[in-house]
Design a protein around this nucleic acid. Structure first.
Lengths: 220, 220
DNA sequence: CTTACCACTACATGACTATGTAGTCTTGCT
DNA sequence: AGCAAGACTACATAGTCATGTAGTGGTAAG
């Protein structure tokens, strides 16, 4: 997390468009505390090179010949888990955004960002933040918003949540009973109430709603 | 989404600390394109007032006497779904952040933000963006990151995903068969494979892993 | 042609779940 | 005290699931 040498932020760029690549490279390299180690036009070239291991930040396009940016992030996430990757693309459709973030990108910018914002984004990412264009951020935030709850959704109680967690793990009533110190019928009693409150009548539905309403959090 | 009158962004502040409240009020009201309609020290007061219906942005503290900021956002989300609420607090613990976002907040700032960043955040929010302090953004993004997949996790096929979706809805094998045009035993065949690939042996576990690995997306 | 694999069908069986009904014990309310 | 509600125990039963084993037809590889 620290810049060991010269406090420089070492950047690697992967971008197939030559003008974009050289433009960014020039802009960023001009900053006194940045250094662009190298820039590549494909993931394959970048990953074959030595410099990737020395980078602090990777700036990656999403559409690339050969291995896509998404695949590239997955690869980097596996090989260099602590190396932050910022996606920068012209596309802001949901699929690309969420695929990139799921794959491990720490930030997502539109290519039209101003040089100033790009520089700030790199500093943010290097400092452990997650730079995003505001409307990308809104997409992300919106996934957290709950569908406005109907009036009559009863809240699950602590004991019920506890049991719902165990249900999600696939345990039998007997096994759950051992964990929460209840008889099998005691477990059944609570599960009836859970089903009624969530308005379901199978385990799987209960688990599904429990997770999607963020009542419980899977640990897989 | 448009400022109809005078192009002004109309702001309401809910913050119990008097100095904070007056400080923000002064800073924001001084901007030529902002107007602070009013500021309140509790949600109850704010919601009783008329001005809330005229606001473009609400800036809300999370710790408040009486109704908490989280509760406040929930209320506003229900009564004024299109009114963006920005949470601003001294706490950046995960629970507060995610509770606030789940409740419907569009942004989340630390109280230590500079006046410049606060103004920018309000402009972003009003324009449909989601302002966040960079380290908050990282927390949010991290929830998307998949646990680096073990080598041996087999990918589910299209047909299997289709069936997993139905499993999450709690349907019986027979009911699933009707949807995907398969015999009950055909459904069973795929489910065996799903269980093997996800390394589980109950419906609920399969659903739980399917959702948490974002293989399927619940529709509750 | 043979071998192998895949998608699917078929059947059997023990285990588990969903649901109804009912009784006990505790706690709070009037 | 009397009553209602909540938390739990108990039992019964139809329905569903998980798993093993086995067979068929299609298609790709050797």
């Amino acid at each position: 997390m620290q810049n060991t040498v010269n406090e420089l932020i070492k950047i690697v760029i992967v971008e197939d468009n030559r003008y974009m690549r050289e433009g960014w490279s020039t802009i960023l390299d001009f900053e006194p505390d940045f250094v662009v180690l190298d820039s590549f036009e494909s993931c394959e070239e970048a990953f074959d090179s030595e410099v990737i291991a020395k980078a602090n930040i990777v700036l990656m396009d999403i559409e690339l010949p050969g291995m896509s940016g998404i695949e590239g992030v997955k690869y980097l996430q596996k090989e260099h888990p602590d190396l932050p990757v910022i996606m920068a693309t012209v596309f802001d459709d949901d699929k690309n955004v969420f695929d990139a973030l799921c794959a491990g990108a720490v930030g997502y910018l539109m290519k039209k960002v101003s040089p100033e914002d790009l520089k700030q984004a790199i500093r943010d990412a290097e400092a452990g933040g997650s730079p995003m264009t505001p409307n990308i951020a809104r997409k992300v935030i919106t996934t957290f918003h709950q569908p406005t709850e109907e009036e009559d959704v009863e809240q699950l109680k602590e004991r019920e949540l506890e049991i719902l967690e165990e249900l999600a793990k696939g345990k039998s009533y007997a096994a759950i009973g051992e964990v929460v110190y209840l008889s099998v019928d005691g477990v059944r009693y609570h599960i009836r109430n859970i089903y009624r409150k969530l308005q379901v009548n199978t385990r799987s539905e209960a688990v599904s709603k429990g997770i999607s309403r963020r009542l419980i959090h899977p640990d897989s």
